[in-house]
Design a protein around this nucleic acid. Structure first.
Lengths: 324, 324
DNA sequence: TAAAAATACTCCATAGGTATTTTAT
DNA sequence: ATAAAATACCTATGGAGTATTTTTA
């Protein structure tokens, strides 16, 4: 047999009471039961823990040493149990993946909101492209991930957060070159316009190719920017057009007055942003809460973009929607 | 029921193996037994610890948090068990009392010797007069004490360490004034010599009074020095004679060339130095070892004193025995 | 003699085993 | 269909209770 946590509790009581009878009472067992357990401990340890006197009991030097350990173990165990009660389990380090075309825009608001929420988890964000996030979820190195549909993987469940529509972004000159088509703008009707995209592997790239006609021999399509920030600079500098998610639009066009945004005709192309977890993830408050927070923060960002446009005039041509 | 140490071990195994079957094997139980214990833990804590998947298992964020606690508890428990095996229990803080007429002389050598012995206890010395040491032993605030017989107290056991004989100490002039009696010096025959003693409460004072005739109206007896060091200065300055324990003689006469020591005629008066413990103190190596060390160190000190005298000439008059 | 711990014994809760079912891929 | 965990049920260990004895001051 091994030393049990229960025995340590009994020993702590004995050390405090200096009396088997009283100590037994404080731990709600009989005196013989306590006596047996203390003797068992002493047998395990090979040394006497206490000195039995006729009216009381005194710890041996060895007993004092063991008592120190027992107190530390007890403190750690209390801390463990407190952890469990605290926030109904919404504690720990949550490992959250986010794709790079979402992370920079949604993260500041999300971390802020989580702090004022009842979630006391410390969130560790890992930015990565869809493939890596899915792999991370599958091997357990991520607990949840924010990405765009479609999510092609077994054993994962996606819950919708919000819809992120695509806008057409370009310099004033480039957009003007599209002419009257602005009023009925369609992604597959961009004709010979030069389209700039992110490097391969971003889901946004795939979505843009799908929308604008992949494989239809768009020689004019250019790929390679590694972030929306880089891409935006290229677009603003007049090198071409790009699809700009609403989520990123406000942040990316700030400080680029030359950059113009045009809204596509309905039905507007969009990507569905979801929060993904493993199917096996047990029902726990944190996932629902996290989903709510992300939906609220992301939803507010895109909504702000849409209402900001209406506040000025409908259609294209505004780079600075009303501040939220 | 409560969370048990055993459950934590099982959980650690599960976290390490990421598989119920393999984890069960590493802790030598069946898979259902492990399954039941993990579920029991989860019920206790109110949260899932692991995510069950078809081929393996993944810790939940909450599970990782609990795992941290479990690892710490395990480390502490290992450390406890290691403490027990180590040195066969000769570990901990030993609280040792020593009377002031012994402590300064025996302590340096004792601490030195204990360090090179197999005792790894850290010794906390409390200096105090016999009464306080006995009280300390009785109430458990001391583990053992070094003092002189007689020890009048129930529930204590004294083991002999060595015999500490008394020498007569005085300035050259004072000893010369005793005249021819030097060859047959007896403590009760000091006549009208001025006798200087320690303050009340020191057992050495009582012993000196007993030897020299307490209550026989020795108006010349003077009491009040609070340490042998002080007393020695007074004696060296010629204010009177005193009984000097062999144990202290070498240290105290060093640097006092004017101080002379005279040995009494056989049977020489002496005090028996003992190591005292409570009768209830369990048999433990440390007590025996400590006794051995003290007897060796103290014995060496008095022996050095005796042989040092023989090396020069027998009888009185030397303040510097051969160096040991 | 009195107070306290140890012992003897009995009982029951529970951890663990085997066999089987359920679940998810 | 297969791998793995959960469930059911039984067994056995060991922790705890009561009654009693032993020990020490």
């Amino acid at each position: 047999m091994n030393i049990t946590f229960r025995q340590l509790s009994y020993f702590r009581a004995l050390a405090a009471q200096r009396h088997f009878g009283r100590a037994a009472a404080t731990v709600n067992i009989s005196q013989p039961a306590l006596s047996v357990q203390i003797r068992e401990m002493e047998a395990q340890l090979g040394q006497a823990l206490v000195e039995r006197r006729s009216r009381d009991v005194i710890l041996t030097p060895f007993g004092r040493l063991i008592l120190d350990h027992a107190e530390r173990i007890d403190a750690e165990m209390r801390s463990l149990e407190e952890t469990a009660r605290w926030q109904g389990g919404r504690a720990g380090r949550l490992r959250l993946g986010i794709i790079p075309t979402i992370a920079p825009y949604i993260l500041p608001g999300t971390l802020e909101a989580l702090r004022s929420f009842d979630i006391s988890m410390d969130v560790h964000v890992q930015e990565g492209k869809t493939d890596r996030l899915i792999a991370g979820l599958s091997d357990g190195s991520l607990d949840a991930a924010v990405m765009a549909l479609p999510v092609e993987a077994d054993g994962l469940r996606a819950v919708p957060l919000f819809e992120d529509r695509f806008l057409l972004a370009g310099s004033t000159a480039r957009l003007a070159a599209l002419g009257a088509s602005v009023e009925a703008l369609r992604p597959d009707g961009l004709g010979g316009a030069q389209l700039l995209l992110l490097e391969d592997g971003h889901c946004l790239t795939d979505q843009a190719l799908d929308l604008c006609g992949r494989g239809r021999g768009h020689a004019q399509i250019d790929m390679g920017a590694s972030s929306l920030a880089t891409l935006t600079r290229l677009v603003a500098a007049g090198f071409g057009l790009t699809l700009m998610p609403e989520l990123a639009a406000r942040t990316e066009t700030r400080g680029a007055p030359d950059m113009q945004l045009a809204r596509f005709a309905a039905p507007e192309p969009s990507r569905q942003i979801v929060l993904v977890r493993r199917a096996a993830t047990p029902e726990a408050g944190w996932f629902t809460d996290l989903g709510r927070v992300l939906a609220r923060v992301g939803g507010a960002l895109v909504e702000e973009m849409r209402s900001g446009e209406k506040a000025t005039h409908r259609g294209a041509n505004q780079s600075r929607p009303a501040a939220g």
